[in-house]
Amino acid sequence: MNNLDVHPRTISSLKKARITDLTSLLSRSAPDIERATHLSLSDVKAVQREAALAVTRRPLTNALDMYNNVCPQEMRRHTLSLGCKILDGTLQGGFQSQGITEIAGESASGKTQLCMQLCLTVQLPTSQGGLEGGAAYICTEDVFPNKRLVQMIQHFGRTTASKINFGDNIFIEHTSDMDSLWYCLKTRVPALLNRFNIKLIVIDSVAALFRYEYSLNQTFERSKKLSLFGAYLHNLSCKHNIPVVCINQVTENMNGYTTNGAIKKTLPALGLTWSNLVTTRIVLSRTPHTLTVGHSDNSGDCIEKYETPVRAMEIIFDSHLPNNVCHYVIDQEGVKGIS
């Protein structure tokens, strides 16, 4: 508060009245402060104005500048490609760099595969849909499938003809309880963001710990922690202008219907508290259909063919995307959309 551009006398009388930070200065009404400090109303209004200016350092912009991407750097929206034209088309370019994107789905629907692919595409130059940076991958559920990543890197390096050493820019953290996840997010991730050029945070998965550590009668504590957690991720995303991707499990749908009327057996877990925090929700699922794909050796020649299930990616809600469904398969190289 000492940095405010007001008369020192005003500051000292504010301090005498135990108003020592901007929060208490702004959250109390002017007449209230006037009574507590014996300052004149105009003095109080002036100091509140200065405080408000100090808090909102963010410049104001308008929608046209945002559309043309000439607004201040931290408000520019980037999209992160999924590494496949069909999937990118469904998402109008890919994942947004502002806000939390949730990928929910039953087990074996391809959530982790999709996120591993994002860890690769994020390293590509912006001309190829990447963000030219590394990825931080926080595992809470399972051991990170290293072997699979190496396999994907081999194919990815070949298809994109890129010289980047993809494995060097993916930082993997394992956390097995709430406290270590919180510690990881509060200290290790900011450190990574400062030291390395991290442009993507993946949490695989949010549901595991929150569902495991709280019992049914602790819903209040759980939603409180969940809100804090979500708000913190929002802040990280906004401050560094990077996408935050959270994997979520699904839960049995007790009511038998969803709010947009579709009959679904499962719903993303963690309830309304979490839904309120999510910017974009995507649900992955398996369909009964299969598709034959080729299995190739290291040189790219096809050596055998096998059947793989066709999976579906559905956009449940987002502020700018229509509710679309897109189908994809997972093969040796990664996640691919099919038309």
Partner: peptide, 29 residues
Amino acid sequence: WESVLAGIHYYRCNDYLQLLATVHLLPEF
């Protein structure tokens, strides 16, 4: 449509303090 977009003044608030401060400054704006 360009003039319409230019007529939407956009503030982004990251926490409640910023929201509070933005509302404080609205009369001036």
